[in-house]
């Protein structure tokens, strides 16, 4: 009951989640993620879909020690607020990095990964995570 993840809910948002498609306001030029049909900044309804850049930098981060049900396997993991190159903000897990090495301002890029495997159904949810830019 507590770890509920519905296949249809996952399925309907998958393309935006795989492609990092957010919203762009045609009134004030605000870019945001996740997509919705009204602008969080000015309230305009003139919103178009916008494929967001795959690179950005870490604004804030946290190492999660008390995961919700279904994420124990990954613990401790890093949740970060990333500012993309066009200014849109994305909430994400960081991967391929030791939690100790994460820093504010760190450059990161998107990567498609397994988000979780759901218990008895065996259903595997994929989505974006971000990893340090390999130079």
């Amino acid at each position: 009951m507590y770890s509920w993840l519905s296949v249809p809910s996952y399925w309907r948002s998958r393309s935006r989640r795989y492609m990092l498609i957010g919203g762009k306001c045609n009134n004030c030029d605000y870019k945001f993620f996740p997509f919705r049909r009204t602008c969080p900044r000015c309230g305009s309804h003139l919103i178009s879909e916008e494929k967001l850049p795959r690179k950005g930098r870490v604004l804030d981060y946290t190492v999660v020690h008390n995961p919700p049900r279904g994420y124990e396997y990954y613990t401790p993991y890093v949740i970060a607020l990333v500012e993309l190159e066009n200014g849109a903000k994305v909430l994400t897990q960081l991967t391929d990095v030791d939690p100790e090495e994460v820093k504010e301002g760190m450059e990161v890029e998107m990567s498609l990964r397994i988000l979780r495997v759901c218990g008895e159904s065996g259903f595997i949810a994929y989505g974006y995570k971000f990893r340090p830019v390999v130079k």
Binding site: S9, P34, V64, P68, R69, Q93
Partner: peptide, 26 residues
């Protein structure tokens, strides 16, 4: 603890935030 974390984290957006492993505490 995991179930409590799930229950109280149902207050953040399930489809876009919760699925990432984010919690109300994060």
């Amino acid at each position: 603890l995991e179930d409590i974390s799930s229950v109280v984290s149902s207050s953040i957006n399930r489809e876009h935030e919760g699925i990432l492993g984010a919690t109300v505490y994060s």
